[in-house]
Simulated scan of single mutants.
Amino acid sequence: MTGEHVNITNLENGGDVGTRELRAIGLYEDYERRWHEAQSNNASLSGTPDAFKRYVKMVAAGDKAMRDYRRSLKPKNVRRAESEYERAREHLEEILDGDLSLGMYLDRAVRFDAGYEPTLCEEGIPRMFNSTSRHVREVYLHFGAGREHKKKHDVKLEILRDRLEQLQGIDQSEQDAGLPDHLQKKLNKMLGRSAGCS
């Protein structure tokens, strides 16, 4: 895909932007820096601490019960899933009571105060930060919170969104002064804007 046909909407929908396009609009160095930071962060939180091994198995048992429910529609599977998630939540509370710093390995901040404890469902139960579960990504996308392993695609999208925010505060004449016309056109296409819009 060339820079002429790439826009931010395409990237949000799973498309890609090549390094050539990032170089053309002067964002490649920023991309490289952020990607190295993301790799460093990803590496620092890879693996599952031993304290979480049993917790992960409990969550997986709850997930299996929910899959069984979706296949059979038997209410007993929902009750079984809730029971597994409740056991997992109690175990997680014990883990974090022992060492609160282990919370950094979870996909979200967790509290056990009345009314704040994790809910007993697939989306509500905390997952490991490095989990490949679809729930980790859904929590991140829905709430814009938590943490996730960043991929190159995520870093590129982040850079383009930052650039779009910068340009929204600048009028078109200032934008044109900053980039040659052909590069400004490429940037406009990548950001999904028409030629005369900011």
Rank of each mutant, 00 (worst) to 15 (best):
A109S: 15
K57M: 13
L73E: 14
R23Y: 09
E94C: 10
K64T: 03
K76V: 15
N41H: 10
P49A: 07
D171H: 14
K189N: 12
T2D: 14
E4P: 01
R87D: 09
S133G: 02
C197G: 09
A24N: 02
A60I: 08
Y55P: 00
N130Q: 03
E82I: 03
D50G: 10
G18K: 03
D154T: 07
H153S: 06
V17T: 01
R54P: 08
Q172W: 13
G103M: 07
G47N: 04
S198C: 12
T119S: 14
K64D: 00
E90C: 06
R34N: 05
E123A: 05
R127Y: 08
L141D: 13
G14F: 02
R54K: 14
S40T: 14
E123C: 05
H182E: 07
M128H: 10
R134A: 13
H182Q: 06
L160Y: 01
D50A: 15
S173I: 14
Y28F: 13
R161V: 04
T119V: 06
E93V: 02
A60K: 11
T9M: 03
V56G: 08
K185T: 10
E37H: 06
A195R: 12
T9A: 05
K76Y: 13
Q175T: 01
D30M: 06
D113V: 12
V59G: 02
S131D: 01
L164I: 03
F129V: 08
A65K: 03
Y69N: 01
A177T: 10
D107K: 07
L73V: 11
A109I: 15
A195I: 08
F112R: 04
R111I: 11
Q184H: 12
R20D: 11
R111Q: 14
R89Q: 05
T9R: 08
G124C: 05
L45P: 03
D176A: 13
A24V: 04
H36M: 10
G26S: 00
R137W: 05
E122M: 10
